[in-house]
């Protein structure tokens, strides 16, 4: 038996909004400690990994490990019926379930809706993501990162991210010309969520497709801050913490010269 009760259904709505445009069908692996989701976009350029630990739930029970193949468009239809402060309960049998039940309860307990979502068969296993030493970590406001990605999309399809000393520069160019946005490591920190931290071991200079970064920023409502981890030989990691009980990490392969 798998059963998980989330007090604030809004969190599940936000998580789904942040993955559904990137990954159509995702593997939701449930064990005694957490729910993890992993999936790739159809072109295999980006990968998303979500972790939500048991402590995020008011009630969590998972007698045997179970994998739920979720079609995110179907799940999204159900969660559109939920208010942010509705309680959401997920239920599934623990041996090869072909469906998952979702129960929505209003805060005042006066309305209950229940749904059954058919599960889909996904023939891939979750990948082991290699441990990587990154050359640069940039922590910044998630809203600012969203703004930069959106603004630069007006100028080109790709963004060049350059980290050197205490700066991170985002550049894009196209027919209209060139745009550069530079953020400097904050000298003083009044509000952590508004400050910029650049932790650099080696300079990096990488180019990424803005289309994917704009999809990643759908996770902005989940956290006030975002961390970018960069290394010349590895995919970019864009991480949003889910409070103290999990994260959404997006991995994006850099572009290379044709």
């Amino acid at each position: 038996m798998f059963e998980a009760k989330l007090q604030q259904g809004g969190l599940l709505k936000k998580i789904l909004e942040s993955v559904k445009d990137l990954v159509v069908d995702g593997l939701w692996d449930c064990d005694g400690a957490a729910i993890t989701l992993q999936g790739m976009d159809s072109s295999h350029v980006a990968l998303v990994e979500m972790l939500l630990r048991a402590e995020a739930f008011e009630h969590y029970r998972c007698d045997r490990n179970v994998t739920l193949g979720m079609n995110h468009n179907h799940l999204s239809k159900i969660l559109k019926c939920a208010n942010n402060d509705d309680i959401v309960i997920l239920k599934a049998a623990d041996q090869n379930p072909d469906s998952c039940s979702l129960i929505l309860e209003s805060k005042n307990g006066e309305k209950t809706s229940d749904f059954v979502v058919s599960l889909v068969r996904i023939d891939t296993d979750q990948l082991g993501i290699p441990e990587t030493e990154y050359s640069a970590h940039v922590k910044m406001s998630s809203g600012e990162f969203q703004r930069i990605c959106r603004d630069l999309s007006q100028f080109g399809d790709a963004v060049q991210i350059t980290c050197s000393k205490q700066d991170v520069k985002f550049s894009s160019s196209g027919e209209t010309g060139k745009a550069n946005i530079t953020l400097t490591h904050s000298a003083t920190v009044d509000k952590e969520e508004e400050s910029v931290t650049v932790d650099l071991k080696e300079p990096v200079d990488l180019t990424f497709a803005l289309r994917f970064l704009n999809l990643f920023t759908k996770a902005t409502p989940i956290s006030d801050t975002v961390t970018l981890s960069l290394s010349q030989e590895a995919p970019l990691v864009v991480e949003y913490k889910i409070g103290d009980s999990g994260h959404i990490r997006y991995f994006l392969a850099p572009k290379i010269q044709e």
Partner: peptide, 14 residues
């Protein structure tokens, strides 16, 4: 510029 396959980068980095 072209996008790379993320799996090939992960496997190359192991």
């Amino acid at each position: 510029d072209v996008n790379q396959n993320i799996l090939s980068i992960f496997y190359n980095s192991i």
